[in-house]
């Protein structure tokens, strides 16, 4: 069989093209580590999500130095957690599942795009080098409000990222002359030790306290203020640490007030009805109020 020179030319060219395609895809896979979305993770039945240790609390969790895992639950018509907050320069593995119908998990403008299938867990690992804000959308029609189903993904600069949680235990009211004990519990969800400053403001008094919280643990900060210094009345308090803030009000009453308030709370029916004119049971009985 004789093959024309030109024909040999484009046969060879076709082979070069095919080899070229294979080489680029191999380079992407071996050289850059590009991978397909896996379903190696164990599935989870939608009705077991609430008791599943991975998904009962959708969250971002640090699992190693610069390594994070994000457990995402999609449902009509939201994503949890929202926003998803991860630090830059990190390797993040998303585990995505659905609580009801098939949803999509797409970060528009990037190659992060997966289905969220009830019963299955999609596993995808992504490296975030730069800080930025991305949207997350559902790209599988999931119901009448599908078009509103969106979330957000925030990549914060490394030095700004923290997983600090704040819980404050403060009395609602104290008697005049007593001390106000306010305890702030600062927990650190990261693996590394976290240093921060707790700001406590009660009335016009402000204190600042530096704390060092070990990884995956919590520290208490106690502030004691003499209520005489604040005087009687209502006083606002605010506790802030990192991006967390808690606030409330403390009532400082004089001792007579405090004693009176005790019988009122255990008062007889007649008394409580008189004190609560908005009682719905009375309203339903047709008793009119001025």
């Amino acid at each position: 069989m004789r093959i024309h020179t030109y024909e040999k030319l484009w046969l060879a060219g076709s082979f070069v093209l095919i080899v070229g395609f294979i080489v680029t895809v191999t380079y992407g896979s071996v050289g850059l580590g590009i991978d397909m979305i896996g379903e190696e993770a164990d599935g989870v039945s939608p009705d077991e999500i609430s008791s599943d240790e991975r998904f009962s609390e959708p969250r971002v969790e640090q699992v190693g130095e610069n390594e994070y895992e994000v457990y995402v639950v999609a449902m009509t018509f939201i994503f949890q957690p929202d926003p998803i907050e991860v630090p830059a320069n990190s390797e993040v593995t998303f585990y995505v599942t659905s609580r009801d119908v098939i949803h999509g998990f797409e970060v528009p403008g990037t190659n992060i795009n997966s289905m969220a299938i009830p019963g299955q867990v999609a596993e995808l690992t992504v490296e975030f080098d730069e800080p930025g804000t991305y949207g997350v959308i559902c790209n599988e029609y999931c119901g009448p409000q599908h078009h509103t189903m969106e979330g957000s993904l925030v990549v914060t600069p490394e030095w700004e990222f923290s997983q600090t949680e704040l819980e404050v235990d403060a009395p609602e009211s104290v008697a005049q002359g007593d001390e106000i004990d306010l305890t702030a519990t600062v927990s650190n969800g990261l693996l590394e030790t976290h240093e921060s400053t707790v700001n406590v403001t009660i009335g016009s008094q402000t204190t600042e306290q530096s704390i060092t919280v070990d990884g995956e643990s919590s520290e208490n900060v106690s502030v004691t203020v003499d209520s005489d210094e604040l005087g009687p009345g209502e006083h606002d308090w605010t506790v802030s640490v990192d991006d967390q803030e808690e606030s409330g009000t403390i009532t400082v009453g004089n001792e007579t007030d405090t004693t009176e308030s005790v019988p009122a709370s255990v008062g007889t029916e007649t008394v409580s009805v008189t004190m609560n004119p908005a009682d719905p049971t009375r309203a339903s009985r047709g008793v009119g109020y001025p």
Binding site: G28, L32, I34, M36, I37, T110, N111, T125
Partner: peptide, 24 residues
């Protein structure tokens, strides 16, 4: 077209899903 699709449109739109053992 192949170079554009792969290197500009695909790789240019990072972040991209990578394997559990990235070599980079």
């Amino acid at each position: 077209m192949w170079l554009f699709t792969y290197f500009v449109e695909f790789l240019g739109h990072g972040p991209t899903v990578v394997g559990l053992l990235p070599l980079g």
